[in-house]
């Protein structure tokens, strides 16, 4: 069972109070009508699915009901940090590989929090958009 630090309640609470909502920092295209099918499909469906460091959106569903972000290792399940909406992670796969702290067999997810689509065009499309 996870003990999760809610950055809004500022306390450690038990896992059943929370819901995981998938990959964090996915920017909605600023002009959806202008998206190609590839860009829109990438935004809706394609996800980083890293074996290792993952930035994900959670909601404190039966607590303060606010959304926030968690950086977590998807192999060891260790929670590395939690941070509020609008903030950026201080721990990323890149920062850990620089410090050579990645566990054996853990894949480094490239792009981290800013990759949005499967195609380069989709990534370029939302680059610069505020998350």
């Amino acid at each position: 069972m996870f003990l999760i630090y809610c950055p809004y309640c500022e306390e450690l609470r038990e896992e059943p109070e929370f819901h995981a909502k998938g990959q964090a920092h996915i920017a909605r295209p600023q002009d959806p009508e202008a998206c190609s099918d590839e860009e829109w499909g990438d935004y809706l469906f394609f996800r980083d699915n890293p074996r290792g460091i993952h930035h994900e959106l959670w909601v404190h569903a039966i607590g303060c009901r606010k959304f926030f972000n968690i950086t977590r290792n998807t192999v060891s399940y260790e929670i590395l940090e939690t941070y509020k909406m609008g903030e950026q992670p201080t721990i990323t796969a890149e920062s850990l590989s620089r410090d050579d702290k990645t566990a054996d067999g853990v894949q480094v997810a490239d792009g981290g929090q800013q990759t949005v689509g499967a195609s380069d065009s989709a990534v370029n499309f939302v680059r610069g958009a505020k998350v």
Binding site: M1, E15, P16, A20, G22, R51, E56
Partner: peptide
């Protein structure tokens, strides 16, 4: 389990 995971184990809840 609702979260992404590769650990071949899940949570007690």
């Amino acid at each position: 389990d609702g979260y992404n995971g590769y650990g071949q184990r899940g949570s007690y809840p």
